[in-house]
Structures are given as structure tokens and as C-alpha cells.
């Protein structure tokens, strides 16, 4: 979310919309409980690796954060996954996020390449469909970065002069 794309919205509305959007996507901290075979550190390692891949392909920061969001939400839809598929899920989330955010997203072959032979291209394609369906094709997530952008925008603008209330208290 951002202010100027809803030009006539009050700051409050934009914030509420952004929060509501986030809520609708149903995040939850409980996903680790659904996957007893996965330890929290494994998620950290995976995300670190995704940052490295993002740097290697000079992706936007927002792309990485989107991928992280897709990953977290996807894990909530699954049960008892094995750590062996984590990297596949992670790289596929980054693949999808690149398509949403990048002007020149990396090719499928490049995505397969960074897994150093662990996964083939057709596995990423299959996983792409599984993830998209599990996420119900909802790919517009608020990320840490989009929240930050919104807060900075609000902080830098002088709204009080434009509102009815302040002129007619």
C-alpha cells in the first residue's frame, strides 16, 4: 500500500486497509508447530540463502520480502513437511516474487542453477503451481519494506493542513 495510489484516502484509511489486507492473508506464528521435523533455525538458514541468491541476481529488496511472505504463508497451509523440500519451496517463492516485482526476472534455468543441482527445473514449475494454489493466488502482501515505505511517506507529509477537521475544529 502507498498513499498516492489511493489519492483521496486519508492516512488512517490507508493504514487500516494495509492492516486489513495483512490480516486477510492470515499470517500466524504457529507454522512451526505444523512441521515438527523442521527447526526454527532452518527457516533462518533458508532466508539467509534466499538473500544471497537475491544479491547474486541483484533483485530488489521487496522481492526477497515478498518471497519470505509467500514462504511463511505457504508453510501454514501444509503439514509435517520434510526439511528436504524447504529449499525447493524457498527458491520457488523467490521465483514467483521475482515475476511480481522485477522488470527482468531471473529465468527458470537460473533459479534451478542456484540450487546447485539439488532441484530440477520441472520440480520448480510443479512447486510453483502448488504454492500459487495454496496461496489462493493472493500475491499482494504487505512486507516489512512496504510498511516502512508507508510510514516514511506519512512521516514526511504535512497532512494537517489538508484536513477539514483542523480548519474547522
Amino acid at each position: 500500500s502507498c498513499l498516492s495510489c489511493t489519492g483521496w484516502d486519508a492516512v488512517e484509511d490507508v493504514l487500516v486497509n494495509a492492516a486489513r489486507g495483512t490480516q486477510r492473508l492470515g499470517h500466524s506464528l504457529t507454522f512451526m508447530q505444523k512441521h515438527p521435523k523442521i527447526q526454527p533455525q532452518m527457516r533462518s538458514i533458508l532466508l539467509d540463502w534466499l538473500i544471497e541468491v537475491s544479491e547474486a541476481y541483484t533483485l530488489h529488496r521487496q522481492t526477497f520480502y515478498l518471497a519470505q511472505d509467500y514462504f511463511d504463508r505457504f508453510m501454514l497451509t501444509q503439514k509435517n513437511l520434510d526439511k528436504s523440500v524447504l529449499q525447493l519451496i524457498g527458491v520457488t517463492c523467490l521465483f514467483i516474487a521475482s515475476k511480481m516485482e522485477e522488470a527482468n526476472p531471473p529465468k527458470l534455468s537460473e533459479m534451478a542453477c542456484v540450487t546447485a543441482g539439488a532441484f530440477y527445473e520441472d520440480e520448480i514449475l510443479k512447486m510453483e503451481l502448488i504454492i500459487l494454489q495454496a496461496l489462493n493466488w493472493s500475491l499482494r502482501s504487505e512486507t516489512a519494506l512496504s510498511w516502512l515505505r508507508l510510514f516514511l511517506q506519512i512521516a514526511s507529509m504535512n497532512v494537517t493542513s489538508e484536513l477539514l477537521e483542523s480548519q474547522f475544529p
Binding site: C5, N17, G21, F95, K99, P105, K107, L129, L132, L139
Partner: peptide, 24 residues
């Protein structure tokens, strides 16, 4: 060869935005 086309993904995103009354 590159999976679901970005065009399609972004169109779906745009439709969801229209549904949310975000067009101007």
C-alpha cells in the same frame, strides 16, 4: 519455459486490487 507468466500473475493482482476498490 518460465512457468506461470508474470503477465498473468500481475493481472490477477490488478483484478484483486479493483475488487478492493483501489482504482482511481
Amino acid at each position: 519455459e518460465d512457468g506461470i507468466p508474470n503477465q498473468a500473475l500481475r493481472e490477477i493482482k490488478a483484478l484483486q486490487e479493483i475488487e478492493d476498490n483501489q482504482c482511481d
